[in-house]
Design a protein around this nucleic acid. Sequence first.
RNA 1: GCGGAGGUGGCGGAAUUGGCAGACGCACUAGCUUGAGGUGCUAGCGGGAGCAAUCUCGUGGGGGUUCAAGUCCCCCUCUCCGCACCA
Length: 820
Amino acid sequence: MPEKPYDHHQIELKWFERWRGADLYRAEENSAKPKFYVLEMLPYPSGTLHIGHIRNYSIGDALARYKWMRGFNVLHPMGWDAFGLPAENAAIANKRPPREWTLENIAAMKKTHRRFAFSYDWDREVSTCEPEYYRWNQWFFLKMLERGLAYRKKALVNWCPKCATVLANEQVVEGCCWRHEDTPVEQRALEQWFLKITAYADQLLEDMKQLEGGWPERVLTMQRNWIGRSEGAEIDFQLQEPGAGGQGPGTPIRVFTTRVDTIYGATCVILAPEHPLVAKLLDDAGQARAKAMVDARAGRDPGDIEKDGFFSGHYAVNPYSGERVPIWIANFVLMGYGTGAIMAVPAHDERDFEFCRKYGITVRPVIRPVDGKLAQEPGMQEAFTDYGIVENSGPWSGLPSEEARRKMAAYAKEHGFGEAAITYRIKDWGISRQRYWGTPIPVIHCPKCGVVPVPEEQLPVVLPDRIEITGTGRSPLENVPEFVNVTCPKCGGAAKRETDTMDTFIDSSWYFYRYTDPHNGKMPFDPAKVAYWFEIDQYIGGVEHAILHLIYSRFFTKMMRDIGLVRNSEPAQRLFTQGMVIAEGAKMSKSKGNVVGADMLAEKFGADTARMFILFAGPPEKEIDWRTEGAEGIYRFLGRVYRFVTRNVGQVSSATGASDRKVLRKLHQALRKITEDFETRWHFNTCIASIMELINVLYAEEGNIGAAAMEEVVEKLALMLAPFAPYLSQEIWEELGKEGSVFRQCWPTYDPELAKEDLAEIVVQVNGKLRSRIYLPFGTPTQELEAGALADEKARTFLEGKHVVKVITVPDKLVNVVVR
RNA sequence: GCGGAGGUGGCGGAAUUGGCAGACGCACUAGCUUGAGGUGCUAGCGGGAGCAAUCUCGUGGGGGUUCAAGUCCCCCUCUCCGCACCA
C-alpha cells in the first residue's frame, strides 16, 4: 500500500459523522464489579473555561476508554463532547458567556449550556437547565423545607455589585466575587433562603475519615478548615449595673471560648460592634462609633486592620471568680463566629494581648508552663498560649489545662451559667439568587397563610420566556406579572410567587445521580439504580471546587440518604484533582483576558493532536502552562504513525525479520508501561513518550521487520493509541481491514517475557562512580557478577594499584567496587 | 501567622522501591531531500577541558546518613496554592 499523507481533518470528520448517534459507551449493568466514572466539568461561568474543559475531557476520556476496553462498566457523562470535535466543538467552545445579560445573549448562552458549559450528555439527556431538572431541584427543596433544612431569614449576606446578586460564603474569594476577582463583595441585609448545611457539619467532618487515602490530603484539609470545628464552652458573664434600654443587672452576656481554663485571667469582655447589646447598652455616640467600626472593616483584608476598640462604660461579672470586668467594643471580634462576644485573656491569647497592651488593660497570667514558672507581670513580652497548669484560679488551681477545661465546663452547666459547646466556622448555605437563570424557588407568599410551598403536582415552576434584564439588584422576575401573581394553594386568595432562583451549585450537587436514571418522571432517580452504581469509584475534577461543589455534593448525598433515596453517605470514594490550566503565570480567566483558544489548536492540527498535546504537557495533577509551541511535535508524531502504517500494511514483505525481536520487545515494553500507568498513576505524558519511543524504533528498523511481527505491532499500536488519539486509532483500525469500533476491542495484553531484554545491563561503578557497563544473562549469580565487573577492561584501569575493600552487587543491575 | 505542595538543561518534563540524572517532546545546529520556502529523513544538543577517546563539575543553598542521594534526615532560602483577627 502506498504511503498516505496524514489528513487529520478528513479523518476526524469522517469518523465523527459515523459515530454520531452510535452507542460506544453505554454502560451495561452486567459486570460483577461495576465501575462508575464521572468526569467533573467546571460549572458555568467559571473563569477557566473551555481549555479546562478539554483538559477534563482529555484526562477523563482517556481513562474511560481504557477502562471500557478492559471490560469495566463506564458511565461517561461527557458523551460526545469528549471526542473533541474538530471544528464544530471548537466553534461551540469559543462562544463564551456574554458579559451583558441581554435576551439575545442569554438565548445564545442557553445553547452553549446544553452542550458544553453544563454537564450535558447526548445519550443520557441530563441537562441542568431543562425544566425537568428544575422539577427535581424543586422537589429536593420542598423535601428540605418539610424537614426544616430549608428556611428563610433576614441576614447579612454577600452581595456582588457586578453580578447584582447574593453570593454564598463559599463563593467569596479574598473578599471578592469568585467571578469578578477585582470586585469587593458588599454586605447587605436581605431576606434570603438558606439550606441548613450546618446540621451536617459534624457528619461532613466525621465522614472524611472514610475518604482518607482516596481523596487528596489537600482537599480534605481545606474542607476541615472550612468546617472549622472547635470545641470549647459558652459562658455567661452577668451584666452588672442597670444599662440603657432597661437591661437589668444579671442580664447574661454569653461568650464562646476554647480555653475556659484561662477564665481567671479574663480582664475584660469584648463585644463585636454588631452585637445586639451594643444597641441596648450604648448611647447614640457609642452606637455611631460601633457603626463606623463596621464600615471601616468592609472589604478590607483582615490582616491590614489595626485592632481598635473603646470602653462601653459598663461592667460584667465573671461567674467563676465573681470579679467585675469592663465591657469593651472592638473591631477584631466577629459577630459571625461563636456568640459575637469574647472574654479577653491577654496573658494567654495573642490577639487579646495585643489589644489589652494597646489600651492598658490588665494582663494577668494564670497558666504556668508544665516545666516552667508562671510568667510575671509587668514584663511579659508575649502571650503564653500553650496548655499548662492552672494557677491563681481558686479551686481549679493546680489542674492541667485539659482537665480544667472539662471540669470547668461541667461546673458551668451544673450551676446554669454555661455549658460545653462546639462552634463551627461553616455557615448555612445561602441559595437565593437574583438572576434570571437558575431554578425558581418553589414557594408562594400569601398575605394570609405566609410562606406556602408549591404543591408537588404543580412542579416544575419554570422561568418565563420574556423577561427584561433590570440589573437593579432585584430579581428581573419581579417585573413579570404572569409569573409573580398567583393564587395561594392553601386559601385560594391572591398571592405572590417567590422570585429568587436557586444557586446553580444546587444543580451540580446531584447531577451525577441523575445520570443513572435520566428519564425518570416520578422521582429524581430510582434508588435501586443508584444503589447499583454508587458510590462513584473515581471522581475527577478541578481543585478549585474543593470547598464549593465538593462540599455541597457531600451535603446533598447525606440529605438524600436521610430522606431514603440513597444508601451511601459519601458520593465518591476516590477523588482526583487535576491541575488547572495557566496562561502566562495566571489562572486563565476572561476578566484577565488571557484565555487562549484551544479551538485554534484543534482547527490547525485536529482534535487528536489537541487532546494528546494536553495529555503530553505534564502529569494530570499538575498545573499546565498553556503554550502551543509543542503541539507541532505531537502532530508530527501522529503523521509519522499514520504514514508508517499506511506504507507497511498490506505489503508483500520480503523483510528478513532480523529486527523482529527488537521491535516486539519495544512494543511489549510500551504496552506494559501504559497498562501499569493507567492502573496506578495516570501519568499519560510518559505513556505517550513510550509510544513515541516505539515509533522511533519502528522507523529505525523499518525494512527488517517480518510480516507477522509487523502485523502484531501495527494492530496493537492502534489499540494502545486509542485512549489518546481516538480518531487516528479508528482510522488505522480500518486501514488494517478490521471490523467495527476499535474501542470495542479488548485492551491488548503484554507478554512480560517478550518485554524483557536478552541480557541484563550491569552498571559497573568504582567508588560509586559509573565506569563501565557489562552485559550478562538475567539471574547471573552474585559471584559471577563480581568477577565479570573486576575483569572488565575499562573498570580495571580504575582499579589498578588500588586495594579492593568491598564489592556491592545488586542482582541484574549493578556492581559497585569500593577501593582505597 | 497557620496548613499544604514544590524548586532537575534554553523550555515542558522523565528518573514509579536509595542504584546509569536529563527518557520523550519543543527550541536550536548541521547534513541529506528540494528549483526555492515548507515538509520529510539523518545526526548533534547540561556546564567546563579536549581534535578525539575521555576526564571533570552538575538536580535552589549548606550540612549529615550511605558502598551509592534528585530521592532519606537536619538547617536555610525562594516560589506557588489554600486558610487567616475563628476567641
